[in-house]
Design a protein around this nucleic acid. Structure first.
Lengths: 216, 216
DNA sequence: TAGATTGTTAATCGATTAACAATC
DNA sequence: TAGATTGTTAATCGATTAACAATC
């Protein structure tokens, strides 16, 4: 275990490792090398070894990594050995869709409350959750020790919702609204905006500018 | 206009510039400096100038950037001065939610067809679009000159769907399934998986490991 | 002219990859 | 022992930032 600062790039790869390791476990594979992982995940094996080595000596020279052990380690690194409660604000179509992921998230990461500012939405059911009004946000976050917020409200409400989440002590936000949130440095923001994503993909279509050019 | 290779980091910032510039335009602001842009978007002004300079000399020394002109330029760089057709595969909750973004995408980027492999879903209506069966995928992509595919099917179907999209000549894929797609190098893949995103956020909760520590 | 701001070069910082001794 | 594979150092590559001449 070193104590260098871990870069975001590394952190973003951890769930990817974890996901594939879980698949290996289901297939009852007990050992895997950085070589194999790299092949499967399209990453450089040295990078994988380096990533993992930030957190400890998890592998065995000449052998590779024990799948079950590594899963357990990454699980710990990602804080998934504790219950992590999540709140979702904005019960529109997207919010609805995301709350269905609860089943997949399992593993101690769970959306436990849904909020919406729109009066008629309040009280309606989303899966097992009842949509709550915004004025219950603060207390709910405090009482349920909610640590992550998901924002799926329209652009013009997003900053205000973020403010409320942060005031209530949330530590991290996943923002689906197409806006750069202004937040204090101790709050972690990840942008997950669909339209931005689509627009940047459009950049790569240059080849197709002339119609009916075939292949590369 | 230089012809260096543009990095993905630069490309991902272009839509963000564009978005904010559009807001300025709505507010009838006609000129903006890299300084102001940087402040608003949490970016280094030098980086913004450098990003834009890859594509041309869009600014005026001593003055800044003309908002309308720069919008037009970025619009062109992102290929949005042509119609870009998009197909969505997987008409579940998430697919449904995304197809609602069509209104926002406008600007020549549009989801024009939706597919699903599940028999009873076929023929149902999603907004203005009728869900089509998978065996019409190839011809539809060809006939409508569809260039981008969105994958919102379950993990175990994603690779196969990607193969079909690529075979039909799609140039870029936005993948919401939690799996690393194996694709030829000329196809651009962006991952947009919700669970991976959530897991990486969980990493940053370390502070909260001990309960009831207050603030930072 | 004085002040502002670009475009660009050079400096810095950080992330990825190659290489290899250690060792299972 | 021979072969495999890690953890880590050093080399490389790339992206960000600072600085400033050019110029509006």
């Amino acid at each position: 275990m070193k104590s260098e600062k871990i870069s975001e790039a590394v952190v973003r790869r951890l769930p990817i490792y974890w996901r594939y390791l879980s698949e290996l476990q289901r297939r009852e594979v007990s050992t895997v090398s950085s070589q194999e992982l790299g092949q499967k995940l399209d990453l450089n094996p040295a990078q994988i070894r380096k990533d993992l080595a930030y957190f400890g000596d998890f592998g065995r020279k000449g052998i590779g990594y024990d799948v079950a052990y590594l899963i357990e380690k990454i699980r710990h690194i990602l804080n998934l050995d504790q219950q992590i409660n999540v709140v979702l604000v904005g019960a529109g179509n997207l919010g609805h869709a995301l709350s269905n992921y609860n089943a997949y998230l399992k593993e101690n990461l769970k959306i436990v409350a849904v909020f919406d500012a729109y009066e008629p939405k309040v009280g309606t059911q989303i899966n097992t959750l009842k949509v709550q009004p915004m004025d219950e946000l603060y207390d709910t976050i405090k009482n349920h020790n909610i640590r992550i917020g998901i924002i799926t409200v329209p652009e013009y409400e997003a900053q205000q919702v973020a403010n409320q989440l942060i005031e209530a002590g949330i530590a991290a936000i996943l923002n689906f609204a197409p806006i750069i949130l202004k937040t204090p440095p101790h709050v972690r923001i990840h942008a997950a905006d669909f339209t931005t994503e689509m627009l940047s993909l459009a950049y790569y279509l240059e080849e197709g500018k002339e119609d009916s050019t075939d292949g590369e």
